[in-house]
Amino acid sequence: MSLLDAVAARKSHSKVTSDAPTHAELLPLVAAAASVADYGSLRPWRLIELRDDARSRLGTAFAEAVGLEGHHAEKLASKPLRASLLIAVVAVNKPSHKVLPWEQDVATAGVAHTLSLLLHDAGWGVMWRTGPHVDAPAVRELHGLADNERLFGWLYVGGLPEKVKPEKKSKFDPESVLSQL
């Protein structure tokens, strides 16, 4: 399969099995993702693996962030348990006289998307999830974020279910977004 075909076939998988890549399996994918355009080679990002109990602690931080209790808190707290591995994507704003903060954010988003493509290509189901909880103090504290860091969300990663529904993608017209000067 060509790179074009692989990228065109990418889809988000909201439901995955409990399988997940190991830390050792992630390392070459992260190394490859680090090749994205990175103005000034600042590497203004970092990634955090959340497995096992860390996912439960994240769920508790979600519920705390919203101030929920009871059934609603349990439902919100269970969201990080939808995948065995979550990879937090953190933008790290680094001082630079030539690379603006938004350019550093673009590099971070590029790493996250490239990593999701690489995980997909390796046979894993991936979904990039965000939400209003990324900036909540309890969530920031759990991830150990510094003042110059911002959480861009999590890649939820797991095995692909045996029966994956074929994607019914609507036909995209590239002419609608590609113009000429």
Rank of each mutant, 00 (worst) to 15 (best):
G40S: 04
A34P: 11
R51S: 03
M1R: 10
W128R: 09
D121F: 07
L145G: 05
A77T: 10
D173A: 14
W154M: 05
K169C: 03
H133T: 06
L76H: 03
K11T: 09
L3A: 15
A6W: 04
K75R: 14
A107I: 02
L29C: 10
P28S: 11
A6H: 04
L3E: 15
V177A: 11
K163C: 07
E141N: 08
S78E: 15
V16F: 02
L26C: 03
E103L: 05
L4G: 14
S78H: 10
R150K: 11
K79N: 13
K171Y: 04
A32S: 13
S41T: 11
P101W: 06
S14C: 03
Q180W: 11
V92S: 00
R10L: 07
R55Y: 04
R43G: 00
F62L: 11
P174L: 13
L50H: 00
R57N: 09
H23T: 14
G123V: 06
G131R: 12
V134Y: 10
D19M: 08
P166D: 08
L58S: 01
A73S: 03
A136N: 00
S179W: 14
E149I: 07
A37T: 05
A83N: 06
G131K: 08
L85P: 06
L58E: 01
A6S: 12
K98Y: 05
L3C: 08
G159C: 04
S96N: 03
E25L: 07
E167C: 04
V177S: 10
T130N: 01
